[in-house]
Amino acid sequence: MSSESRVVQGRAGNARSFQRWAAENPLAVLAAVFVVLFLATSAIQPGFFSVSGVRNTLLQAAPLGILAAAQTVLMLTGGIDLSVTMIATGAAYVAANQSPGGAAIAILMGLLVGLIVGSVNGVGVAIFRVNPLIMTLAMSSILLGLFTAWTQTVLAGSTQVAPFIRLLGGGSWMGSVPYSVLVWGGVAIVLIWLLRRSGWGRLIYAIGDNETAARLAGVRVWQVRLSAYMLSGVLSAIAGILLAGRTGAVDLQLAGAFLLPSVAAAVIGGTSIFGGVGGYSGTIIGALILSVLNSLLTFLNVGQAIQQMVYGSIVLALAWGYAGLTRRS
């Protein structure tokens, strides 16, 4: 295993040691994929290779990255949340409706929507042990119905969000760093700290890896699970408010297109859908890859049909590649 013998082994040895390195650092490989995609986009759209190109990519990626954060936490526990986009839309609606009363109230009410819906999901999954796929799917359907009805009644007022929310979603700090990216950064730091350095993070991984073991060790699994769904609701609400801020107004299709990408970003980033393995740093790169891919396909101007096909193929290829890399080790 000495470095000397590696040199002697020559080319095949180099390939193998690269493979081993890649298997141990899958995130670096993902980052490289991102860079390649970014350069490819720049080659097609020369203006893209610039500060504003980077800024745009980050701006696009922020809401997706936050929705994918919700998905990552739940996937680590062995769950999933198909209602993230409806929670986001609902929170945005409430925030818009409350906007005449000031941005602070609007944001708080929006987050409250996320917390409430997340709690209901959590109660269903953690206490009544409903399969998360079904629970959140049903929740999504409930929310869609409720908010469609409410837009004509209790939420009939404002569909415009407060100026501060618009600034948060679309504005930039000192004209260069988008506020939404700062929010995303804050979410990322907190979440990575929680997952890596807190007892809660340990428990999230533990219940996802082996729920019975966690239970026997005295972990109150339902509390951990409930808290994860609550957090997921709040994160989705944050993403919804940012999205509303970016577009300035809300509608029922606000976040719909982000559902599958939010799962895909976490998966590409190496979080196992069965729980216990992964982390948020991978998801961040996953979200960046997907948003730069979006830009690339938009610049290519190939039409929606080809876009969807390429998008699907690349998600599959990346997930496959990741699985191949990490399985070898």
Binding site: I306, M309, V315, L316
Partner: peptide, 23 residues
């Protein structure tokens, strides 16, 4: 063959087939 979870693979192929349908 890939060892990628079913849900992920079919999520991706779902995009491909709907793109194909649209085409």
């Amino acid at each position: 063959l890939s060892g990628v979870p079913d849900i992920v693979v079919t999520l991706a192929t779902g995009y491909i087939w709907s793109g194909l349908a649209l085409w």
